[in-house]
Design a protein around this nucleic acid. Sequence first.
DNA 1: AACAAGACCTGCATGC
DNA 2: TGCATGCAGGTCTTGT
Length: 279
Amino acid sequence: MPELPEVETVCRGLSKSLLGARVSDAFVRHIALRKPMPKGLESKLKGRTIEKIERRAKYILISLDNRTTLAIHLGMSGRLVLSHNQSSPQKHDHIVLSFDNGMIARFNDPRRFGFCDIAPTEDLPKRKWMTTLGTEPLSPDFTPKLLHSLLKGRKTTIKAALLDQKLMAGIGNIYACEALFLAGIDPRREARTITEKETIKLTSAIRSVLTAAIKAGGSTLRDYVQADGKTGSFQNHFAVYAKEGQRCPDCDCDASKTKGIARITQNGRSTFFCAKKQK
DNA sequence: AACAAGACCTGCATGC
DNA sequence: TGCATGCAGGTCTTGT
């Protein structure tokens, strides 16, 4: 589910209510997500004050006042929602934190593809899941030149390359499809065939789709909600994602032999694109 | 090393 | 109504 814009939105929402708040009570359901829950997590959280909440790739990083950081990944179906309602943990709640300011934060993840880690902040960059993460696509480092060098020699498709978190971190299936559409690039192309000129278009497409999605509070398909429980709205602005058979917003493909937005499977995942516009 | 496929889970929509 | 099938925003592991 949550890709970079959704995780960014959640981080901003959590920051509004939780900075400076102290954990008065912590519930952890010790059932394995992608990895087992850290041992003794409850006692590591209880009594701590939240100093900073930020995002790296699709990870939420919550800095505590004892120089430790709690990292949470939402997987496909995860939510991290704030409320004032004190109630016993619901189905698929994995972490419930009560704060001294009256807020309750719940990390709920039905599919359990999520992930949770806690470590001294200075050790964080050494965690295995952290060391493999590539460049942030919204950082100034993400230039056409860098993208071109990342794609160099790669025989995999450009779509698969955009999803490769080792190359650039944070893009998921929705925004890979949308960015390729904006850039006018066929998702089936080999990554190494993308020209320098095309990387200019592609970096700019990636930036603009991610930025617009953050502005819209992310995309809600089914599970994702913001920290305040509201849905995102960027799904209303999709050009191609989940629009199989519909007309391309940019051309008259509907009337052509391509018959609108196509859906194909690449590396086991759906890709949506317009074969007329994207070359 | 790079790449593709399978595995990990639950829930929901669809079709019989 | 029940049951089987396929599909979903991600990443890790395995095998070629």
